[in-house]
C-alpha cells in the first residue's frame, strides 16, 4: 500500500515537471477543448517560470507568516504575554471569517498592483492557521509533562525548546501545510492584480473562453498544491520519526 502511494506521488511529480518543461508535447490532449484554432497550450508566457514565480511568492509568504505566527504563539503562551491570549484567540476566530479575496482586494489600494498585494494577502491569511495550531499545540502540552520539566531543573528556555516546541511541532507543521495549500489557491487569484503565476493562464482562458487554458492552469495549480501538501506531510513524518539512542 505505501509502495502504491509512492508510485502515485512520483507519477504526479513527473507529470507536473513534464508539463512545465515540455508543455507543447501535451498539446494534442488539449486541442479538442479549443475552438476556432485557438492555441491549446498557453503561449503568452513560460509555464515553468510562472509556476516558479507562484511557488516563490507562496513560499516567501508562508515563511514570513510562519515566523511571525509561531513567534506570536510562543509569546502569548508565556506568563508575560498571557494577558494577550484571550484577545489573540478571538482575533484568530474573527480573522478566519475574512475571505482571502477580500484581504487581497483591500491590499491593492495600500501597496498597488503586482506581487506586493498578493504577498501581503498571503502573509496575512497564512498567519491564521499557523497561529491557531501553534496555540493549540503549546496549550495542549500535558500539564504533568511541563511540571516534570520544570521540576527537573529545566530553565524556561530549555523547557520551551526541548519540550514544548517539539511536542507542538506536528500541529505547527500541519498549520504551515494548511496555509501553504490555501496560499497556492489564493495566489492564483493574485493574478487578477497582476501578480506573476499560473492564475494568469486561467484568467487568460476565462477572458478568451479558452477552456484548454483554464484546465491546464487549474490542473497545474491543483497538482502543485497537492504535491506540496503531500510532500510536506512526508517530510514531517521523516523528521518526526522518533529517534532511538542506539
Amino acid at each position: 500500500m505505501p509502495r502504491a502511494a509512492t508510485v502515485v506521488r512520483l507519477a504526479a511529480l513527473a507529470l507536473l515537471v513534464a508539463f512545465l518543461t515540455k508543455p507543447q508535447s501535451f498539446a494534442p490532449l488539449f486541442a479538442p477543448l479549443t475552438q476556432y484554432g485557438a492555441p491549446p497550450i498557453y503561449d503568452q508566457g513560460n509555464l515553468l517560470q510562472l509556476a516558479l514565480a507562484q511557488l516563490g511568492t507562496v513560499c516567501l509568504a508562508a515563511a514570513a507568516s510562519s515566523l511571525v505566527a509561531v513567534g506570536l504563539g510562543i509569546l502569548v503562551t508565556r506568563p508575560s504575554g498571557a494577558q494577550f491570549l484571550p484577545l489573540s484567540r478571538t482575533l484568530v476566530n474573527i480573522g478566519q471569517t475574512f475571505p482571502p479575496v477580500a484581504v487581497l482586494a483591500v491590499a491593492v489600494p495600500l501597496v498597488g498592483f503586482g506581487e506586493k498585494p498578493t504577498l501581503i494577502a498571503l502573509f496575512a491569511y497564512g498567519l491564521l492557521p499557523i497561529f491557531e495550531n501553534t496555540l493549540v499545540g503549546l496549550r495542549t502540552c500535558p500539564p504533568a509533562v511541563l511540571e516534570a520539566a520544570s521540576g527537573m531543573g529545566m530553565s524556561a528556555r530549555q523547557r520551551l525548546l526541548s519540550v514544548e516546541l517539539p511536542l507542538a511541532t506536528p500541529l505547527i507543521l500541519e498549520g504551515i501545510r494548511l496555509s501553504l495549500v490555501i496560499n497556492v489557491g489564493t495566489a492564483t487569484i493574485g493574478s487578477t492584480v497582476a501578480a506573476k503565476g499560473l492564475g494568469e493562464v486561467i484568467i487568460a482562458g476565462l477572458l478568451s473562453s479558452n477552456t484548454a487554458f483554464i484546465l491546464q492552469g487549474g490542473l497545474l495549480t491543483g497538482l502543485m498544491a497537492i504535491l506540496l501538501y503531500d510532500g510536506l506531510a512526508a517530510l514531517e513524518r521523516r523528521l518526526l520519526r522518533p529517534v532511538t539512542l542506539d
Binding site: G185, G199, I202, I214, G222
Partner: peptide, 11 residues
C-alpha cells in the same frame, strides 16, 4: 479542497 477556487470554476 486543494484545487484553487478559480481553477475549479473554470474546469
Amino acid at each position: 479542497q486543494t484545487i484553487p477556487a478559480i481553477a475549479l470554476f473554470g474546469i
